[in-house]
Amino acid sequence: MNETLIEVEGVTKSFVVRRRAGRFRRTREEVHAVAGLDFTVRRGEMVGYIGPNGAGKSTTVKMLTGILLPSTGRLRVAGADPVRDRVRLAQRMGVVFGQRTTLWWDLPLRDSYELARRIYRIPDATYTRNLDRCVELLELAPLLDVPVRQLSLGQRMRGDIAAALLHEPEVLYLDEPTIGLDVVSKRRVREFLARVNADLGTTVLLTTHDLTDIEQLCSRVMVIDHGRVVYDGGLDGLHEQGRSERTLVVELERELPPVELPGARVVRCEGTRQWLAFPASASAAPLVAELAARYELRDLSVREPEIEDVIARMYEEAERPVAAVPSH
């Protein structure tokens, strides 16, 4: 399945913002929400799309779904122009916005599904099969007859995800699907998304701030900042790109000044315990051997870099001009 589904070429989007300058005067200012995006997504891929607030993530999703017109550049989903073919493409895509709902607030969940069946003209067999699967995997059975306004956030979210999948879309856009959910609900949603991707080959573009979502679901991640893709590749590569470091925590026999060790630097001292940082790409074994030869150790452990830290460093670095972006 190597067919390209989403093509984005040099896409920009700018908004004109009017600011008050003095009592009556207003200045026009152009804000670039997206400053030149290039990427492609193949059919069946599950791509994580991350970036800090205001980086242009939602704007990208809105352009891909055809509700925002790019200022410049070319954008194709399944070979079609999303804005011009919005209604036709809508038939082939599913969208879940974590902070918005497509469900009917005052009516039982079931009604929203029945309506989706009509809206998307879903054949009976397909509808039943998909609804059954969603009900089973998302544990919706007890919720079907509850008015949506009485559902908890986690329940509503599961309901929304099911609603977006009843018509078997080829591509699913998820904008923060796990926002505000408890651990159990998050896990259930993730397991479900993984199943959908594996069983149906649905292409998924997942926007999130929760990096665990990405770690558990996506083999590929795109990091966007200031409207540009600053990283596009596997999760492992992210560590290299972010120049992340692992940490060696040593417990010495007695309290000492910071230890001297080539290839590592002490980042923290606390009594007999010291924290040594070294590049994530380097091996810990020679360091440990060297350390044991020089000092008496009581205990030691290696900590892997937190993906959060890696990303945070990347966001900070993106403030400065970006070096090379590894191609996917």
């Binding site: 809105k62 779904t65 209604v87 809508a90 038939q91 895509m93 918005r100 497509t102 809206i119 998307y120």
Partner: peptide, 13 residues
């Protein structure tokens, strides 16, 4: 409140 955005995702007039 911007919810109209999700309405536009549907293939309806």
């Amino acid at each position: 409140n911007g919810d109209v955005a999700v309405d536009l995702f549907r293939p309806v007039d």
